[in-house]
């Protein structure tokens, strides 16, 4: 089962004794802070986990895959994630099939 914000909040209750509402709000603002930083064009470096970077893409020619019609893909700004060495190593060790 996928990890959700509710499960993260539950863990904060269990491990730190935060009340349910506090924990839920905390997880909410945690991701909101990340979004605010990226929205302001500021990349994020979370040591042990990874970096979120901003990339400015130039306009390039594209195609509507259904109609074959040529349409330009406009210049845009996107977020990329690069996992840190520590996370990479932990994940690499995973040998099973992905759920």
């Amino acid at each position: 089962m996928a990890l959700t914000k509710a499960m993260m909040a539950e863990r904060l209750c269990d491990e730190l004794g935060l009340n349910k509402r506090e924990a839920k709000e905390f997880v909410e603002t945690f991701f909101e802070e990340l979004k605010i930083s990226l929205e302001n064009g500021d990349s994020i470096k979370l040591s042990g986990f990874g970096n979120f970077d901003i990339r400015d893409k130039r306009e390039r020619p594209g195609r509507n895959p259904k109609t074959g019609e040529e349409i330009p893909i406009l210049a845009r700004r996107v977020v990329t994630f690069k996992s840190g060495q520590k996370l990479k190593t932990r994940v690499e060790a995973y040998a099973g099939s992905v759920k």
């Binding site: 996928a2 990890l3 914000k5 993260m8 863990r11 945690f30 991701f31 995973y94």
Partner: peptide, 28 residues
């Protein structure tokens, strides 16, 4: 501690082959 717990929880899930889904933010 909360920030560390959240990041560790995320790293743990991924290293068990589990996805992370945060609506509005993204998925891992």
């Amino acid at each position: 501690s909360s920030v560390k717990i959240i990041l560790e929880h995320m790293a743990q899930s991924l290293s068990k082959g589990e996805r992370i889904e945060i609506r509005g933010f993204g998925s891992f």
